[in-house]
């Protein structure tokens, strides 16, 4: 198991390096120049050349790459071309915001989706199933920027329950932190909850048709025990895989929600940096995000072994 883990970690590092390198060269291959964004239309060719030199953007790509990679090995991600701030500082500030939104979105969506999925499956083709289906499709079809704005209008502007924007760190207190997160997390989690609910329903339905479920029922076990103990545990395995991947997606998929709620998280940082060709920030953020993706996949693989002891990696 240990050797397996070690191998997986090494592969993961290799994947991250590959992604970062690919992004480095792809960014430079597409048209667009961050220096133009900084200097605006008043830029003179001399000022552009000078600033490009000051920012280390003037050499051949392989020189820039070597310089960047050497710095990366020392743990230095460089500075944002546009803001002047260190990329590490920008990411350290952005990451907890996005993690918080994604984690809370995940909790909210699981709390809604798993029970809904179970009920849907257990009460197939009854009113609760139809209701859950309709709600799930609504959740899937609502664009989250629209939902975010509607929630702001209702809960912030009319009821004054939650703030319409911003983020406060957990250090300022759990409640202020949570209050700023509820609307963005709910907005982010809706579509996700719908997917999980539908997925739980279909896997549950499959499992409920298995022979061991019939055996359990014929032994006279309570339906609740059959569903929750025997069926759910097996039905959750594919769901957990989706949760793992989806959580990683949530981390970068919050960009619209971050824009709507004016929260400078990872997604917003990444997208704005791509638009403005802020290379060091894009590279740093991609490295972090790919690390999260790879790490999450690893974690899910390990989780399998605990959920289903039949799965062994030796």
């Amino acid at each position: 198991m240990r050797i397996y883990l070690l191998k997986r970690v090494l592969y993961s590092l290799l994947v991250m390096w590959g992604v970062a390198t690919l992004v480095f060269f792809m960014l430079r291959a597409i048209p667009g120049d961050p220096v133009t964004v900084i200097l605006g239309e008043e830029a003179t060719p001399e000022a552009v050349e000078q600033l490009r030199h000051n920012l280390g953007l003037d050499g051949p790509f392989y020189v820039q790459y070597t310089r960047w990679f050497a710095r990366l090995l020392r743990g230095d991600l460089g500075r944002s071309i546009l803001a002047g701030e260190q990329v590490t500082v920008l990411l350290i500030q952005a990451a907890p915001r996005t993690f918080s939104i994604a984690a809370l979105a995940l909790i909210i969506s699981l709390m809604l989706a798993i029970p809904a999925g179970i009920i849907s499956a257990a009460k197939k083709h009854t009113f609760p199933d139809h209701l859950a289906t309709v709600v799930a499709f609504l959740g899937l079809s609502m664009p989250n920027f629209w939902l975010g704005i509607v929630l702001i209008l209702f809960f912030s502007v009319h009821l004054r329950w939650f703030p319409s924007m911003g983020y406060v760190p957990l250090d300022d207190g759990v409640w202020p932190w949570l209050r700023h997160l509820i609307l963005p997390a709910f907005t982010t989690g809706t579509a996700f909850a719908a997917i999980i609910a539908r997925m739980t329903r279909s896997t549950m339905l499959e499992v409920l048709n298995e022979t061991y479920i019939s055996t359990a029922r014929s032994k006279g076990l309570l339906e609740r025990v059959v569903v929750l103990k025997h069926a759910l545990r097996n039905a959750l395995i594919p769901v957990i895989t989706v949760i793992g991947i989806a959580f990683s997606l949530l981390l970068v998929g919050t960009v619209v929600v971050e824009d709507v709620f004016a929260i400078q998280g990872l997604g917003r940082t990444l997208v704005r940096s791509i638009i403005n060709r802020d290379f060091p920030v894009v590279q740093g953020a991609i490295l972090l995000v790919s690390g999260i993706f790879v790490g999450m996949n690893l974690l899910i693989d390990i989780l399998y072994t605990y959920i289903n002891p039949k799965i062994r990696f030796e």
Binding site: I149, I152, F261, A262
Partner: peptide, 15 residues
Amino acid sequence: IPVPEPDTSVAALRT
């Protein structure tokens, strides 16, 4: 605070 999203800035002004 940078607030590029028009709807959000309007909501925040109103609240």
